[in-house]
Amino acid sequence: MEQMVTVYLLGKEYSVPATLTIMDAMEYAGFKLVRGCGCRSGFCGACAVIYRIKGSTELKVVLSCQTKVEEGMCVGKIDSFPVNKRTFNIEEIKATDNIVGQLYPEIFSCIGCNACTKGCPQGLDVMQYIAYAQRGEYEKAAHASFDCVGCNICASRCPAQISHSAVGLLCRRLTGKYIAPKCEHLAERVAEIENGDYVTLLEKLKNTPLDELKDMYNKREIEK
C-alpha cells in the first residue's frame, strides 16, 4: 500500500501519495492546471506556492514542482506576481552612471531584513545581489543572481517593494553586453561570414555526392 499524507490544497482536504510533488498532488486531487504550471522542472518559476504546516506559524514559499508534499501542508498559490519591469534601450544605456539605481531607485529602500534571501527556492543570496547593484558592482550582481528563475517569491516578501528579478536581469544584460570581455574569435568569424568567405565551400558541400559525404563524415578528424 502506498504511503499517503493529508494535505490542504487551496483550503480543501485531500489524501495523496507521499512521494508526489505539490504540483503532482494538485493533479492527483483533480485540479486541471492552467496557471501555475510551466516547465515542471524548476527552470521557469511559474509554480510558486505558499504553504504552512497546519498549526505552525511559519510560512514557506517554494516551487511546487520541486517540493514534495508533507503531512499537514496547507497550500495556496501565487500564480502571478506584479513585478515592476522598467523598459530601456540596451544599445543606449551604459554600465556606468548608476544606471540600475536610476531605473530601479527602490533598491536603495532595502532595509536589510533578508526576507528575500530566506524565501529564495534557488538558494540565492538575493539581498547580497541587491547590495551589489546599489554599489554599482553589476558584474558581481550578475553572477550572484545568475540562477534566478524569476518566481518572484523574493518580491512577494519585500517590505521595500523591490522587483529583485528585474534588477538581477538588468545587471546580467549589462554584464553580458558591456562588462564581460569581448570575444575576438567571434568577431573575426562574423566578419568572414559577412564577407562571403564560406559561400563557395558550402555550395560545394551541398553538391557533393552522398557516398563521398559519408566517407568524409566517417573519416573526419575529431578534436580531442
Partner: peptide
C-alpha cells in the same frame, strides 16, 4: 556565428575565458 554574436550583443552572459574566448 551571427546568431551567437546577436545574442552576445543583447547581453547574454556566455561562459568566457578572461580574454573573451
Amino acid at each position: 556565428p551571427l546568431a551567437i554574436d546577436w545574442l552576445d550583443k543583447l547581453g547574454v552572459m556566455f561562459d568566457k575565458e578572461a580574454d573573451g574566448t
